[in-house]
Each structure stands twice: as structure tokens, then as C-alpha cells.
Design a protein around this nucleic acid. Structure first.
Lengths: 179, 179
DNA sequence: CGCCCCTTTGACAATTGTCAAGACCTGTGG
DNA sequence: CCACAGGTCTTGACAATTGTCAAAGGGGCG
């Protein structure tokens, strides 16, 4: 209902990767399976509405409409996951951080993105989470944010609140190290 | 019906990333959308059975059973995509290549993986595609394959045919650089 | 036999990670 | 109200991994 949920995968030696972020009002869970390699964890305060797995599976079976909506959400998540695969596989650290900030902005304030007014939002993750999301280290994330700040692409308050004066500049940074 | 399809994403400057591989008899396409950022391309000879988008969308609407199957495939692809996000984000080049080989083996010969007999298969991609899949360069892929070969984890013929004498050893390499 | 594509290998450069130290921010207790 | 403690974030110096550029080695097909 509100908040941000991290979906994470953990390796035996402790390496961790965030494999998805979910924003309200997404459905969290894995229908048709008893368990999954993926863990869900609250990134912020989260309010949600939960059902026992069996009840959920029954509801899906009973309501084609619900199933359709879940199917569409799954397809959207798949699109996002693939977008993210491109980011992880082919973008530089600078581009990754810019892409992350843009993605957060898109989810926090979907409509404001069309206009070219300044945008302001809170990053719902700490540096360590951003690093786990981007496949980087905390230090690299910090340095890239500093670089964006010094270049005037973003303004940061309290390490969490970000203002983007010119969204176009941020967009360009998603595909080039310094445009 | 047969063959392997690459799903790719392209950046403006030409960087490319394979964001998914599909093996027969998967469904290829994006229901509910006119277009997608993702392109599909044959990696090997491919035979498939195609329908106009409208017909397909109608079939989905008419058959809950079909929709259910497609939903399940989407969930499976999502699981795979997330597995791959972990690989791209947190694994070393050596681990990536090992993971890739294991994934191919799993898709080519699902049952043989339980026993501990040697496994033999053809890699359906050339080095350049493997690199685009793993977010590496051709040269790095080549070096890592050489390393696995010299370590006796795999035997390679004609650059395409691979034999894995001991699957356990390959499995270990998916999470450690040299076990 | 020779050409073309793919692959391998080597030397070197660039990006990112590691380790270590210090700054900042926030809440708590004096 | 201030000082302190804890976690979080930034910055720097250096190391490791991976990328870049260049050249040479196969293999298949005309």
C-alpha cells in the first residue's frame, strides 16, 4: 500500500544483489511456487496487505481479471528487469548511478517527468543498498554522486533528498559519462 | 519450435546487451504492447510458428488456459532475469563464464544434470554473443574459457562443442573464481 | 590454396575495488 | 544545551580486474 520493497538475492559467500525494487501498489510474491531464491525486504517503512499463499492462488484461479492484472505486472517487471540487465552489463559506474536516480524519479513522481521543471525527491535507499542494486561498491556510488553534484546535475540535501534542476542533463548522463 | 533466440537491447552509441535467451518451445513476444525496447534475433537456425499480434491477443483473451501458461512462462523468465542480474552485478568474469556454460547445459539437457556423468553440448552462441550476454568483452570471455580448459573443468572441440567431465566442479566455479 | 571470419594471446591502459581514515548527521543522555 | 556514540557517507592512496589495441593462429568454404 505504501513504501518500497527490495527484492534481493544472496550468494553463499555473502555477496548480495538487489534484483528488483517494488513500489506501491505492486503485488509482492511468487504465485505457483512454494519458495523462491529471491528474498523481499522493506527498504523504507512499508504498509502492505498480505494473504496466505493458498488463498492468493485460489483468488487467482477464481478471477481471470485478477490474473490478467498480475500477468501484466509480471510483464512490466520483466521489462524493468531487462532494462536493468542492460544497465548492469553495459553501463559505466557513472551511467549506472544516473540511471538509478532517473528510475527513482520516475517511480516517485511519474507525471512530473514530462515537463521540464525541477524535480525533487527522496532516495528511498541508503548508499549500501544503491551499491547492491547497481553491482558496485559503496565507495564508487559515493564518488559518482559527488561527481554529479559537482557537475551541477543534482543538488543533494541530507544525503537523501535530491533535486534535479534539468532532467534532460540527467537523462543524457544515463548513456554518456559526462554529457 | 526449435533453435535459440537472443533478446537484445541496443544503446544509441552501439553498445549491446543480450537480455534474455529463449529456447524451444518458449513463446516470443510482448503481449499488451505495440512495441518494445527489446529486439529478438535468431542465434541459431530457428523454426517458429508466428501469429499476428491481434490474433494472439484475441487468443489470450479467449483462452484462460493459454493465458495461464503464458503467465507462468513470464514468471519463469522473470526468475531467470533476476538470476542473471545477480550474475551480472556480483560475479567475476570467471564466475560469469562458468554460470553461462552451466545455464546452457541446463537448457540443452535438463535431465542429465542430476547424474554425475560427463555432459556434452554445443554452445549455441559465438564469443561475441557470449560477451554481449555476460557484459564482458570477447577477449575476456576467450581468456576465461581458456582458463577453464587449462584447469580441466571443460574440454572444448571446434570452439563450440563442450564436454564437462565433472559437473560439480563447474558448479563450484559459478560462485568461486577457482575452486 | 587462399581468403574470411572467428578466436586466441600479449602488452598496456582504464575503470573499479580495497583498505584506511576522517567528516557528517542523528539521536541519546548528561 | 552540549557532548558523545553509532551508523552513514565521503575522500584518498593503492591494487586488482577488466577493457583496449594489436597481431597472429585456426578452420571452413570457395
Amino acid at each position: 500500500m505504501s513504501g518500497v520493497v527490495k527484492l534481493t538475492r544472496l550468494m553463499a559467500d555473502g555477496r548480495q544483489q538487489i534484483v528488483g525494487l517494488q513500489f506501491a501498489p505492486d503485488f509482492v510474491g511468487r504465485p505457483f511456487r512454494q519458495s523462491s531464491e529471491v528474498s523481499a525486504e522493506a527498504a523504507t517503512e512499508v504498509k502492505l496487505c498480505s494473504f496466505p499463499k493458498e488463498v492468493m492462488d485460489e483468488m487467482i484461479a477464481a478471477s481471470p481479471d485478477l490474473e490478467r492484472r498480475l500477468y501484466q505486472q509480471a510483464l512490466d517487471e520483466l521489462d524493468e528487469a531487462r532494462e536493468w540487465i542492460l544497465t548492469l552489463g553495459r553501463k559505466s559506474a557513472a551511467e549506472k548511478v544516473a540511471s538509478f536516480l532517473l528510475m527513482i524519479a520516475e517511480n516517485v513522481d511519474p507525471q512530473a517527468l514530462d515537463g521540464d521543471r525541477p524535480i525533487r525527491f527522496e532516495i528511498p535507499l541508503k548508499r549500501a543498498d544503491i551499491a547492491d542494486f547497481l553491482g558496485l561498491t559503496i565507495e564508487t556510488v559515493s564518488r559518482q554522486i559527488t561527481k554529479l553534484r559537482k557537475a551541477g546535475v543534482i543538488v543533494v540535501e541530507n544525503n537523501r533528498t535530491v533535486t534535479v534542476p534539468d532532467l534532460g542533463r540527467l537523462r543524457r548522463r544515463c548513456e554518456t559519462d559526462a554529457g
